[in-house]
Amino acid sequence: MTGPILQELFSFPAYLTLKVGLSCLALHLLVTLPLAWWLSGPRSWARRGVSLLVTLPLVFPPIALGFILLTLLGRQGLLGVPLESIFGLRLVFSQAAVVLAAFVAGLPLLARPLEAALKREEIKELAQAARTLGCGPLKAFVTVTLPQVGPVLGSGLLLSLARATGEVGVTLMLGGNIVGRSNTLSLEIYNSVAHGEFDRAMALCLILAVCGLLFYLILEKLTPSGS
């Protein structure tokens, strides 16, 4: 079994999965972190609407969500047409689509707990204290709020990364499961089983299992003990 595992470890699906995971981490830090900060503000209809959209991947079947995104981002889609005509971007069935799928799937796993942490009264009070000590809102966020919600941010990033590596439904619809272009490790398990290559599927499963175990161990480290 060691041979096939090593072989799969250096295969295109493993490389793509790693690339997608790292891209998702960067996207979450750039997009989800400020989004969660905004969502933690006073309640409004805009925030409720965005909150619903953020939660959707948790409560809506991934394959259905993937289909909706495909119709929106496809060449004739509501967003696909302007994306192609203005930016020359053809998103569906590309690696960017795989990243987008993984990002969308992991979004609620980071945004919701982070939003809840940022809404806590004591966190807001600490930010207020920093403001009275001369910090502007951004500096107060970076120097006080962010370190205070650090464990939540860390565990949320890890869970969203785990979700990204295991994503199938949305990725299948948006990425198209094209071999050599958009076939991640999880999709490759599906492909192997479909072709009757059960040993290969098992090797891929073991790789993902080790990744899962690593995620779990890091999560355990991040969770405060005795609280």
Partner: peptide, 20 residues
């Protein structure tokens, strides 16, 4: 003027120390 521009210091009911 925002709090950081007022040059007024504040001690709250709870200490609000930064635990990190």
């Amino acid at each position: 003027a925002p709090p950081e521009k007022r040059n007024i210091s504040y001690v709250f009911q709870r200490s609000r120390l930064f635990s990190h």
